[in-house]
């Protein structure tokens, strides 16, 4: 498993741990509140850390994380955060239609390649991670090991 995949796996695990903490039932509200906050902070801090590290990979121009189309974390030069958020939401909506029609399963990744640049969108728990790079960048290779 290469570097970025292992980072995504960690994020998935943290997202699941947070989700699990939210489904816990009981009367100890204070403890549940504290635990939920800690699990959420662990997940979000890991997202921010990954966003900050991905930008060190060769060819990556920007990396950002979105929740419901709104910016959650960013590094590098994101051209227009609001427009990118809208693009992500629309892309995921269209992909989800395909998911139902083509029996793809839950959408994990969407890649849009333009003449000049490309964008990879990766869903991790409740958030979408975006990696922007020039078209010719081999993202799989760039993200295979940490270059920081």
């Amino acid at each position: 498993m290469h570097w970025f995949e292992s980072q995504l796996l960690t994020l998935h695990q943290l997202a699941e741990a947070y989700n699990f903490s939210q489904t816990q039932k009981g009367n100890d509200i204070l403890n549940m509140s504290e635990q939920g906050r800690q699990k959420r902070a662990a997940f979000i801090e890991a997202v921010q850390a990954l966003v900050n590290r991905v930008i060190d990979s060769s060819g990556v121009t920007a990396c950002a994380a979105y929740h419901d189309g709104l910016i959650l974390a960013q590094s590098g030069k994101t051209p227009d955060t609001d427009a990118l958020g809208a693009l992500i939401q629309e892309s995921i909506r269209v992909a989800q239609k395909g998911e139902a029609i083509l029996n793809l399963g839950a959408i994990q990744q969407i890649v849009i390649v333009g003449d000049l640049n490309k964008i990879a969108m990766i869903t991790v728990g409740p958030i979408t991670l975006c990696v922007l790079s020039p078209k010719q960048t081999n993202l799989a290779l760039s993200l295979s090991q940490y270059n920081g």
């Binding site: 939210q22 509200i29 549940m32 509140s33 939920g36 906050r37 959420r40 979000i44 994380a65 979105y66 929740h67 419901d68 189309g69 709104l70 910016i71 959650l72 974390a73 960013q74 958020g85 409740p126």
Partner: peptide, 15 residues
């Protein structure tokens, strides 16, 4: 970061 603040708000309200 609006998404960050909104996410935290949404998750905090049930608590």
């Amino acid at each position: 970061l609006l998404g960050r603040v909104r996410f935290e708000l949404k998750e905090t309200i049930p608590v």
